[in-house]
Amino acid sequence: MEKVTRLASQNGVVIFTKSSCCLCYAVKILFQELGVNPTVHELDKDTVEGREMEKAIARLGCSAPIPVVYIGGKLVGSTNEVMSLHLSGSLIPLLKPYSATLS
Rank of each mutant, 00 (worst) to 15 (best):
S88V: 00
C21K: 11
K96N: 10
G12I: 08
H86E: 08
L85P: 05
I15W: 06
N80Y: 13
K18E: 07
Y70P: 02
S99Q: 12
C22W: 12
V68R: 15
E81Y: 09
L102G: 13
V27E: 03
M1P: 07
P67S: 02
V4A: 06
G73S: 03
I57Q: 10
F31I: 02
Y25N: 04
N11M: 03
L95N: 12
L30Q: 14
F16V: 00
P67N: 06
E33F: 15
I71T: 03
G89K: 00
K28L: 00
L94C: 10
S84D: 13
A8R: 12
S103P: 09
E54I: 03
C22I: 12
P67I: 00
R51P: 00
E2C: 00
S78Y: 15
L95I: 00
N11Y: 14
S99I: 10
N37H: 12
M1V: 03
C62M: 09
T47C: 02
T39D: 01
L23C: 01
V76W: 14
T101R: 15
N80L: 09
I29F: 05
T39H: 14
A8L: 04
F31W: 13
M1S: 11
K55M: 04
S99C: 11
E49M: 10
T79M: 06
K18Y: 07
V13M: 04
P38Y: 01
K18M: 08
L23S: 01
C21P: 07
T39N: 06
G72L: 05
L85F: 11
E52I: 02
M83Q: 11
A64C: 07
I57R: 13
Y25E: 01
V82Q: 09
L85Y: 14
K18S: 08
T79C: 13
F31M: 13
T79A: 08
G89T: 01
K45F: 03
G12D: 08
Y98C: 01
R51Y: 08
P97R: 15
I71K: 09
Q10P: 00
C24A: 10
C62P: 05
S88I: 01
H86K: 10
G50Q: 11
I15T: 09
V4Q: 07
V48M: 05
C22D: 00
S63P: 04
S9A: 11
E2F: 02
H41F: 14
S63I: 14
V68H: 11
S63Q: 14
L23K: 15
V4E: 05
G35H: 12
T17Q: 05
S78N: 12
L85M: 13
P65Y: 10
L95P: 10
A8N: 08
